[in-house]
Design a protein around this nucleic acid. Sequence first.
RNA 1: AGAGGUGUAGUGUAAUGGUAACAUUCGGGUCUCCAAAACCUUAGCUGGGAGUUCGAUCCUCUCCACCUCUG
Length: 292
Amino acid sequence: MILVIVGPTGVGKTKLSIFLAEKYNAEIISSDSVSIYKNVNIGSAKPSIEETKGIKHHFIDRCSLNEEYSVYNYQTEARKVLNELIDKKKNVVIVGGTGLYIKALLYDYRFTKKTKEDEDFSNFSNLEIKNKILSLDPNNQIHVNNRKRMIRFLNSYEEKDTNNNNINTPLYDFITIGLTTSRDKLYEIINTRVDNMIDKGLLEEASNLFNKGYKKLDYIIGYKELNKYFRKEITYKESIEEIKKNTRKYSKRQYTWFNNQMKDIKWFDTNFIDFNKTIKEIEDYLVSFNIK
RNA sequence: AGAGGUGUAGUGUAAUGGUAACAUUCGGGUCUCCAAAACCUUAGCUGGGAGUUCGAUCCUCUCCACCUCUG
């Protein structure tokens, strides 16, 4: 049995996944592009050792912050782990907020294999790059301003898999559960969660990592804003507000992804006062699939 | 209470006696490897009233709100 748990940040996915993994004697595969890195513990809201209740968690602390790790690596490794667990007839709970990682793992999503060095486009304007693309692919839809995507396209064009039209075809049998809540409630939770992270020592954690100079941190919410504070670009208070704001925006994008890129999600409202009620609803739902 | 100043989008700021702008927030969206990323996009404003004027956000008066100083 493969159970997939999705939803925006802060709704209680981790808690639910551990409960269900314990109940169904499953191992957990995390689909989170940040907690896959070591040392970003508080800011990525990783479960503590006590919280994991001894359940095997894959892809948490998988690599170090100076390693390059992409969705392609994740897809390769996570499928391997997943296949092994299936062979062992082990139940699996896949949980995470990174939609692309989940989709790449479970659907027929194909990435191109790198065979040559990346070309340098720094001397080209966005429009010039776009025109290059159009000469190869007249119907290309990548927006002119999306330089990163355009360059990525050109650097992978030759190896492109032309049969890659199956990104919505699932490769496994799985049940997808979404946890959600009202927008207002979610924003409230995000705001207090950031404050809690600070209480738990996020500032110190971020400061230690900042001093080691990991570039990756400038891409991670909670660290990139504090880095700006450490560089004296903004005040401490401003950095906290930015963390909250960026987390809210992130959660919004997660909704967009899960609503539009993944089908067949059964959504449940999180009951924050009595989480057991949420769990009960989900258990009842799973019974309808003969999962007990 | 008196004197002065300021009122433009949720916020921060432009501009003009003739179609009110930029950033940002909010909302919506895109997605084949930095995805907690990158990018796109809808909407929204001249404090209220009166006057001058063909036409006022701009000039005048008044009310209201806020700020500073004096008491």
